[in-house]
Structures are given as C-alpha cells and as structure tokens.
Design a protein around this nucleic acid. Structure first.
Length: 860
RNA sequence: GCUCGAGUGGUGAAAUUGGCAAACACGCCAGACUUAGGAUCUGGUGCCUAACGGCCUGAGGGUUCGAGUCCCUCCUCGAGCACCA
C-alpha cells in the first residue's frame, strides 16, 4: 500500500502516510524490558491562539530525527507531546470574549495538534497530556501538598506591585518606570499574603547537580549565577553605647583592617534604636524616601550613591577602631544581613560612597603589579593589617576569621542570591491551591483530636496567617479531595482587593469541613441542623499556581499518563526513568529548568520517584529562527513565516529538511524562502532517482562503481555520526553529495537505493515511506534497522599527499604504497614540475613530512 | 561595568589532532531542451590582474615548517548578569 501518485505529489504522499501511522499506531510504545529505552523530550508548547510558529518545528524536527534514528538503532523510543495550557493569554482572551478559557484552550490545542500531525512527527499521541486537565493537575496539586507537608511551602507577606487602574497585581516585568505597561496606570507597592516555596533549602543540591549533567555551558553558568553562592564570613561589630551588635556578611574578611565605616540598608531593624538624636530627622526622611523609590531606581548603577549618617559608631573587632555607621540604599536588605562593612580602598561601591561623603579610604592590600590605584578589588598581600600583614589575601581570609571566631566576633558563612519561589498568582486560569483556611482554634482542636481526617499532608508546624485580627491556619486537602477543580464563572476579572477572581465565587469559596470524615460541603448548601462540633467553617485559598507548576513534572506524567493512583506508575518509571535528551528554547534557562530540577530533587528525596537525582541529563537549546530580514519575527514587522503555508507550498518533508539545513541547530539564523527551494529540489531529485516519468520504479544498476560505493558508505557513516552529534545541516549536505554522485553515475544499485532511503527517513519520513513501499516492502520504514556501512569501501586505495613550499600548497602527490619511506616521498615531491618551479635554485633549509598528509619544503 | 559566545564569498554556511579555506545550498552568469520558463539539465562563479602571478577567514601582533583553528592586544555584534558586599 502506498499513495501511488505518478509524480512527487507531496500532499497526497504525506497525508497517506500520516493516516497510516495513525491507524497502525506506529509510534506508540510500551515498556519492553528486552530493549534498551531512549526517552526524547521536547519542551511542550503553550497552545496559543495564533497556532504553531515556524520556530516550533525546529526543535521538534531535531528531536524527531533523533527519535527515529535511535529507534532504527534498536532502542525502544519514547517521544511524547503535550500542552502547557494554563496561562495569562487564555485568561485575557476569556476576559475579552467571556468564553471560558477551558473551551478556548481545547480549540487551540486541536489546532496545534493538527498542525503538528501535518509535519509528521513520530509522537506517541496516546500519551498526550494537558496541564489544565483535572486528571493531570490533580497530581500537580498532590505535589504541592507534599511540599506543604514537608515544610517547603509557607505563606508570607510579600510586597507586590498593585495597579488600582487594572485592579490587579502585576509582575515585575509588567511595571515600567512606576506605571503599568498596559494602560499606563500608576502602580504601588502593596503587601499581600503569598504562597512561597522554599527552593533556597535546595540551593546547594541544585548547585551540585549541575556538575553531573550534559548541558550547554551558558545555561549552567546562568543557573550557577542565579543561585549565586558565595563563601565568606559573618562578622559582629559592637555598637558604641548600645548592647546590640551589627552582623555583616563579607566575602573579603582579609580587608577587615581597611574598614572605615559600616552601612545598613534603610530597612535594617536596628536603625531606629541606634540613631543619634541629632540625626533622627534626616534618617527618617531618608528611609521614607528610599521606600518610595522603585527597585529600578534603587538599583540604577548610573546614579550617584546616596546615604545618611546615623551618628552612631561601631567598633571594628580586628583593631578596636571606632567607625561611623551610615545608612544607604545601595545596601540591600534582602541579601546577607542587610548590613556591610565598607572597605573603600578595595571595593568599588564603598569607594564611590566614601568619595562623595569624604570618608577615609585606607589601603590594606598590596597589589602585585604595584600601580596601587584605589580601589583595588583583587587579591594581593596584606599591609597595614597588624600581625596579618605580609599574608596573601587567601591565607589571611582563613586566619582572620579563625581568630575572630575564637574571640566570638565572627564565623564562617555562605550566602545565596537565590530567593524563595513566590508561588501564588491572583488569577483564575491556574491550578487552584488545595488549601482551606480555618480559624487557628479550630485547627488546634482538630489536630489534638485523634479522629482528625486531614492528617495526610499535615506539616509539623501549622502555616498560619492573620487577617482582621484573627489567625487562620492552612488545612490541606487530602488525596481523596483532589483534583480541586476551578468553579465555572463568567467573570474572569480579578476581584479588585488583591485576590483572584475565585474570591468572588462564594459557592466555591466558603465551605463547611467535617474534620472527622473529611467531608466538604459548600456553606450555602450546609444545613444548620447538621451542625455539630465536627463541622467547621472554612474559606478556600483563592490564589492559583503560577504557570511553571504544570511544567515542573510533565516529563514524569508521560510515562503513565492515565495512572490514577500515583503521579507516575512505578513500573513505568523503573523502565523509562528520566529523559535521555531534552530540547527547548534557551529562554527557560533559569525559570522552568531550575523549578523542575527543584521539584524532581524533592520528589526524589521523599521517594516519590526512583530515578537519578537530576531530571534532564542532556539538554540542548535550538537557536531562534529570524525573519528573512534578519530581525526577530513579529506581526508588526510583517516578517512572520507561517508553517502551514510552507507545508502547503513545499510539503512537510521539505519544511523539516530545510529547518535542519538552515545552519547549526543551536545558532540563531534567518529564514530564507529561496533557500527552501534548494531542499525541495533535492527531494524531487530523490524521487526521480527511484520513480520514472510514468510512476514506475526504475531499474537499478547491477553494480555501483567503486567511487560511488565509497560515497554511499561514507554517507551512511557521516549521517549516523552527525545525527549523534546533532549536526543535521552537514548530514543533509552529505546526502546531497551522495545523491549528486549517484545521479552522475546514472542511478543507484539495489542495496544503495534501500540504504539511502533508510538514512533519509528520519529527516524526510513521508517520501521515504512512500518510496520504501514502492520498492516492494511491507510495513513502515520506521521499523527497519539503520544500515551498517562497509568500512573497507571507505578507505582510499591510494594516499594523497599535499606538497607545500614555504607552507603554501603547490602540488598533490599520489602514492600507492602507504609505507613509502620519507626520503622516497621527498624525492618524488621535489621533482613535480610546479614544486621545482618554486624551489628553483633556492637553498632548501628544511624538509617536513607529516605521515600520509603533507610535505613541506622550507626554502630561503 | 562584569562574564560568556560569535565575526569566513553577493547570501545561509562547511572545514579530525594546527595540514588543499569556502564542501553543500541559495543567488548570479552562460549554454542546452523548449511556444514559454518561476520546470529540468550542463558549465562557470572569493578578491585584484590583460596575463604571469599575487592577496584572502573583523584589525594588528606573536608561536609554528605550516594558523580560520593556539597565545596577546584591540574593534564590532549577540546573549546573560547587573550595587549580591
């Protein structure tokens, strides 16, 4: 069976084979212990309303080629796909149109799926998952509850951007210069109660894990920088005339003799206590002013540093010197202890500050190059540092801290830039957080009662939150209560008081909970007659999870997408483990890839997944495809290429081939409409080598020339190697070279005709299937094994040696005997006409021979 | 500012350990077949030069018999970080 057209009619061929694959479930896989597994993972798309972008098929084709190749190598290959479908665009569409985001999402997914099927990816669609499906997010909620139980989820009052004009909380990225990006309304800082995940507890594990993964260096570096671990010391400074002391964190304890002042962040709690009476007003004003400033203004490097003296003094524990305590907003409250020891001689920022306020600058490090320009921020030899003078910075760091530690004025310490993960969003279209808030007294009474139903996910310490003078505690739902689904509504706007739209849906919001039976009923349906001590009134958490939640563990769900009893079936995970290859855009270098590593590591630690510690062993980022004008594709520039139109015009095989031929996979590269004609022509040439003008299979040669056999075998070898190295552009050019020589030789022989299709199949599967079938084969070419090349055909029968004079190529020398002596080769080479000419009567100073490759005569 | 990455024909690009720079393709030029060509095939195509020949991998220097590849300085572009003490 095959499409049967006379000419290369890609439309007919491609739809025929897509139906064939669907009907025969060609790409569906099961665990098979007799075979080695290979798990290929794509970053799943957000199904936007605009359909597939031309960039999507780039990564998907690359992973598809690898998946098909690995399958041909005998692996049991899993290549699944799904939808990361929660998110803001669907919600905004709902606000505009009133159409439920779920409906809209289903439509978008069906468009995406149809488009992807048209490109012929070898995907096991039976494993399709959707993060907005309650069967899926039931387990996202379950993981949240595990985090909650293990003390890794807590609530905190966090400052967020509030926009009264939009009645909504905005993300940092949505605030530009103190106004909302959309609508240009003013925004203010507002403290809201937020869920936060304790990712910082995993900082060290997340850092260590990076040393065992095969990832792009730049991505590893980004994560390392994001985690931002530093080694240093906490040093305690006594305050003159007060009992309190100030703790500062420093990575440069070797510069402690150069401290000329301390600086506290304006938010530092000690300020009020220590400020000298005369300085009170100025300090108060400065603190107030800096609170008004946006983060952007405070961190603007261009501005000159400002600050204010507190009039208080601290004692340097190293030398007993009295130093002034300042406040300044260049010191961040959120890092370290919110206070620093300022060493203007050896820190750029302290130097700037000291210069503008006329504070002393002391040099305590001697720079080896000796120009002694301050501030000198590198390491060197200590000077003016008491008994530590003469030590190197490195040595001094250990010795000074050890000494201060003995007198209880310091301790070794580490610090991280990583902050805990703000996990709540005031949105409708996200996973509801499966928590009910109940009064603290009810909670305590329930916990004390041994009939308490809700023990499954109970943390050691209750998570509590005060509101209107009453303290509430977070009551976790149990597995039986999941999924907690989104209530229907037709109003997706935020409520206006900093809560999600869910806060307006009272029938969902207010519930009675039976703490002994676990029963939950809407408050409005509750029959007061039933009321007894087991029933308590609660209010559901109204925040939803951020979009990152669903993508944190989807690679696990693919392994057993229909499992109802666990996040992943244990047989399935024992077999498939974690992805062997993961491809997706570099824009997720820190967010998704860090969050997912955190969750995986957590699930590993609690024994929920029995795999390695890292979820993504090998990671690759495909480069962005630019518009034909070399700029980013965008509607406003009018340079957007629609994959559907490309498939209509050239076919899916041509699209696949072209996206891979464009250049190295990881590089940014511009699209070229002319360029695709080249690969389209190649496919037509392939067709014509197999099928004659009447649509019949050609007669192949009995034998192929030695030259052609060399090329064919080289091609089999190179294409295989290039796929393993993800160098698809050169693999394709090698296939073109091969076809060109076959064409010159007047056609294939039987064996090479079959082998060529097998290596083409991962790149252009439709035409390969069609021609394979026409050669008289049954079944899919997908199920054939990769051809072995014949190494003896590749070895050249004679050796070619390059002859150079003064390093410039002047001739080629062909020798039959690979073991010919050096002298004999020189003799042959020197007598070649063109070589003679360049040597002429000049004196030969040196003769170089590199075995089997090059001869070089050096003449005066 | 700091840290990475990149810079090769008209264009996208290719080039084991340092060993024929520009494979493969696009475009362009010429030709063949054609009523026709936006089809197909053949040949040509880095730059300078009439030619011999010379010069070419962002610029300059270095190491080497030999450098696109290694080292130093600088320029340009891209990415990331950005007062993290």
């Amino acid at each position: 069976m095959y499409a049967g057209c006379k000419q290369y009619d890609f439309d007919q061929i491609e739809s025929f084979w897509q139906r064939f694959w669907d009907k025969n479930k060609t790409f569906c896989v099961q665990e098979d212990p007799s075979k080695e597994k290979y798990y290929v993972l794509d970053m799943f798309p957000y199904p936007s309303g605009t359909g597939l972008h031309i960039g999507h098929p780039e990564g998907y084709t690359a992973s598809d080629i690898l998946a098909r190749y690995k399958h041909a190598r005998g692996y049991n290959v899993l290549h699944p796909m799904g939808w990361d479908a929660f998110g803001l665009p669907a919600e905004q569409h709902a606000i505009k149109t009133g159409i439920n985001p779920a409906t809209n999402t289903v439509n978008n997914i069906s468009v995406f799926k149809k488009q992807m099927k048209r490109i012929g990816f070898a995907i096991d669609w039976e494993r399709e998952i959707n993060t907005t499906d309650p069967h899926y997010f039931k387990w996202t909620q379950w993981i949240f509850l595990q985090l909650f139980k293990h003390g890794l989820a807590y609530v905190d009052e966090c400052p967020v951007w509030w926009c009264e004009g939009l009645k909504s909380v905005l993300a940092n990225e949505e605030v530009i210069g103190g106004r909302s990006e959309r609508g240009n309304f003013p925004v203010v800082r507002k403290n809201l109660c937020q869920w936060v995940l304790r990712i910082t507890r995993y900082a060290d594990k997340l850092l260590e894990g990076l040393s065992n993964v095969d990832w792009p260096d730049s991505t590893k570096r980004q994560q390392i920088a994001w985690i931002g671990k530093s080694e240093g010391a906490n040093i305690f400074f006594k305050i003159d005339g007060h009992d309190e002391e100030i703790c500062v964190y420093t990575t440069r304890p070797d510069t402690i003799f150069g401290v000329t002042f301390l600086v506290l962040a304006p938010e530092h709690p000690l300020i009020e206590k220590i400020v000298a009476p005369k300085f009170k007003d100025g300090v108060k004003k400065y603190v107030k002013d800096s609170q008004k400033k946006s983060d952007l203004e405070r961190t603007d490097l261009a501005k000159t540093k400002t600050g204010m003296s507190t009039g208080a003094y601290a004692i340097n524990p190293a030398n007993g010197e009295k130093i002034e305590i300042w406040i300044a907003d260049y010191v961040l409250a959120s890092y370290g202890s919110g206070a620093i020891m300022a060493v203007p001689g050896h820190d750029k920022r302290d130097y700037d500050f000291a210069s503008s306020y006329g504070i002393a600058i002391t040099q305590v490090i001697d720079e080896s190059s000796g120009d002694n320009q301050l501030p000198y921020v590198g390491d060197g030899v200590l000077i003016n540092s008491g008994r530590f003078s003469g030590l190197s910075s490195e040595e001094a760091r250990g010795k000074i801290v050890s000494w201060l530690r003995e007198i209880k004025r310091a301790d070794f310490a580490q610090n991280y830039k990583l902050r805990d993960w703000l996990f709540s969003r005031q949105r409708y279209w996200g996973e509801p957080i499966p928590i009910i808030w109940i009064k603290e007294n009810d909670y305590k009474a329930a916990v004390a009662n041994n009939k308490f139903y809700f023990k499954e996910f109970l943390p050691n310490e209750p998570i509590s939150n005060g509101k209107d003078g009453i303290t509430y505690c977070a009551l976790p739902l149990c597995t039986n209560h999941l999924p907690l689904t989104l209530p229907p509504t037709d109003n997706y706007l935020p409520s206006g008081d900093g809560e999600s739209p869910l806060a307006k849906i009272h029938s969902w919001l207010n519930v009675y909970v039976n703490i002994e039976t676990g029963q939950i009923v809407p408050a409005e349906d509750f029959n007061e007659k039933d009321k007894n001590s087991s029933w308590i009134l609660g209010r559901r958490e109204t925040n939803t999870m951020p979009q990152w939640a669903g993508s944190c563990w989807y690679y696990l769900r693919y392994l057993s997408p229909h499992c109802e009893t666990a996040i992943v079936d244990s047989n399935a995970i024992n077999y498939w483990q974690t992805p062997d290859f993961y491809i997706g855009g570099a824009e997720h270098a820190v967010l998704h890839l860090l969050y997912a590593r955190f969750w995986h590591r957590f699930l590993f630690d609690i024994g929920a997944v029995e795999t390695g510690k890292e979820p993504f062993k090998k990671l690759f980022h495909q480069g962005i495809i630019l518009g034909e004008d070399g700029t980013k594709m965008s509607k406003s520039r009018g340079n957007v290429i629609n994959p559907d139109e490309v498939v209509n015009r050239y076919g899916a095989d041509a699209l696949r081939l072209y996206e891979m031929f464009l250049g190295p996979l990881d590089m940014m590269k511009p699209w070229s409409t002319k360029g695709i004609e080249g690969v389209s022509r190649f496919l037509k040439k392939v067709w014509n080598e197999y099928i004659d003008g009447d649509g019949n299979v050609r007669n192949f040669h009995e034998n192929l020339s030695d030259e052609c056999q060399t090329v064919v075998n080289e091609t089999i070898k190179k294409v295989g190697n290039d796929i393993e190295g993800l160098k698809f552009n050169t693999a394709i050019s090698q296939m073109m070279i091969c076809l060109n020589s076959i064409q010159k030789a007047g056609g294939f022989d039987n064996a090479s005709a079959r082998n060529f299709l097998k290596i083409l199949a991962p790149f252009a599967p439709h035409i390969s299937e069609e021609l394979w079938a026409r050669l008289g084969n049954n079944g899919s070419i997908y199920d054939t094994l990769w051809p072995e090349y014949d190494g003896s055909k590749i070895l050249p029968t004679h050796q070619k040696i390059i002859v150079q004079v003064n390093g410039k190529m002047r001739a080629e020398l062909v020798i039959d005997d690979a073991n010919m002596s050096e002298d004999a080769i020189f003799k042959l080479a020197i007598n070649i006409g063109n070589v003679k000419k360049y040597i002429a009567d000049k004196k030969i100073l040196k003769k170089v021979y590199v075995n089997g490759t090059v001869v070089n005569f050096v003449v005066e």
